[in-house]
Design a protein around this nucleic acid. Structure first.
Lengths: 243, 243
DNA sequence: CGGCCAGTTGAAGCGTGTCAACCGTAGTGG
DNA sequence: CCACTACGGTTGACACGCTTCAACTGGCCG
């Protein structure tokens, strides 16, 4: 381990400390994890459905999405990921990947051997708890997404996705709601909300016209956060203070 | 603990053994859990969103559903549960319930103090792994549901829900696909698939007419399992051999 | 300059929702 | 034992939100 690794693992440490109290030994154990850093271009597949990963992917910078594909070829994004996220903790205990993950922007990732992470999880219960808790919050977010695509109309769906994404980004200090750089295309928003890109476009335009958001080239800002939350039916409780 | 408790905890033991190898001490630790048995009528709420449960609910017989409610009042079921399921393991590490759970049939449940279960999880790593793994499979099922309600048409959605439910029931020997007693109404199927009861009715009728399923009063049988799976785009891999 | 990608817009179609009525069965009480 | 009720299921007519298809724009990059 060198000093550079420590800096890189800092993102992970900060995330886990938000999930559970950690003492110095816990933090040291995380700092001792081996990390193989890699820069990847946009749309690089990080995990492929059906494969059996033997390492976990820590997202150091950039954004990623997990998705599944229906028999018709339609794609459904089931979650977006932001810097500091461990993209596939589930593979610590599940052999086969049940979905794929790809970078949606150029990104820097760190690969951690699965066995190392498992060892730390059981040797340092506080770290284990933090990791387990992370999985549970993941689950809570999926439940909210089932509700989102199952029962909300297009406008609420898109608004909800934006609220969640921005709140989580602010928690790790990647962007601010008043002046945001949305890392995803309308196509990706469509994949996440179960809509078509055409309709996402119309929804965004309507939110813009209503003065809720403002879009200029490359920038995206929430003009009226309260109203966006109301439209979205967004209540951050399901994030369990992880954000 | 009396012999009766051992018999009741047998369902839990069998489930956890499917999730991870357990030795005799692990099984004894599970057998020593205190269990407060309760019979509940249909539609009894077992967990309420916003509450902070201090015990976990083991479903001994009957069926249950987890759900969330949108601001419009629309309800979305996010999972069904069958005998042997621990309904709210997530509350081991998340204080606040982010969704509600209710019995959808008369049921027998066993309440286990949260602290006891947590203690066993850390004292007996194999048990802890089994519980953690259970949470991860839960998550995998949610992901599949996001895809289901997000990207499949009404017929596939309903068919998929049926496939999953029946496969899981068969794994715990509750019913067989050739002659099944569906424990849920069309209203509940609608709540789970993001459809209206009226449309669920039309879909089921169409599946019946096509000779894929057969419905008589109280009974429900899959006539052509292969075709149902094809219509459903169902591949059990996401259940990770838990079923 | 040319090509590509993301975004934008309009017109038409369709899958599912909505509304409303009706049926059959089981349960309840007189 | 029958009237009454409640509930789950069934059906038809119509409405509408979103999809589909297709064309076009603007910016970026080779």
């Amino acid at each position: 381990m060198n000093n550079n690794d420590v800096a890189l693992l800092g993102r992970l440490t900060r995330k886990l400390r938000r999930l559970n109290d950690l003492d110095d030994d816990d933090i040291a154990a995380i700092g001792n994890l081996r990390l193989q850093v890699e820069r990847v271009e946009r749309f690089r597949e990080l995990v492929r459905e059906g494969h059996r990963p033997d390492r976990c992917c820590l997202l150091l910078s950039g954004f990623a999405a997990r998705f599944k594909v229906a028999a018709t070829g339609a794609r459904q994004i089931v979650s977006f990921h932001i810097p500091g996220d461990l993209l596939d903790i589930q593979h610590l205990l599940l052999a086969r990947a049940d979905h794929s993950i790809e970078a949606i922007t150029p990104a820097k990732v760190g690969w951690i051997p699965k066995a190392d992470l498992l060892k730390v999880a059981w040797a340092r219960p506080s770290v284990g708890k933090a990791l387990w808790r992370d999985c549970l919050i993941d689950g809570s977010i999926f439940r909210e997404w089932v509700l989102n695509v199952g029962r909300r109309d297009a406008t609420s769906r898109v608004a909800h996705m934006l609220c969640e994404f921005i709140v989580r980004c602010e928690a790790v200090e990647v962007g601010r709601r008043e002046d945001f750089e949305l890392p995803m295309t309308q196509q990706l928003i469509a994949d996440a909300t179960g809509l078509t890109p055409v309709h996402v476009n119309r929804v965004l335009k309507a939110l813009d016209n209503r003065g809720v958001v403002e879009r200029t080239r490359n920038r995206f800002s929430i003009v009226d956060w309260k109203q966006l939350c109301a439209i979205a039916d967004f209540d951050a409780a399901y994030l369990h203070n992880a954000a």
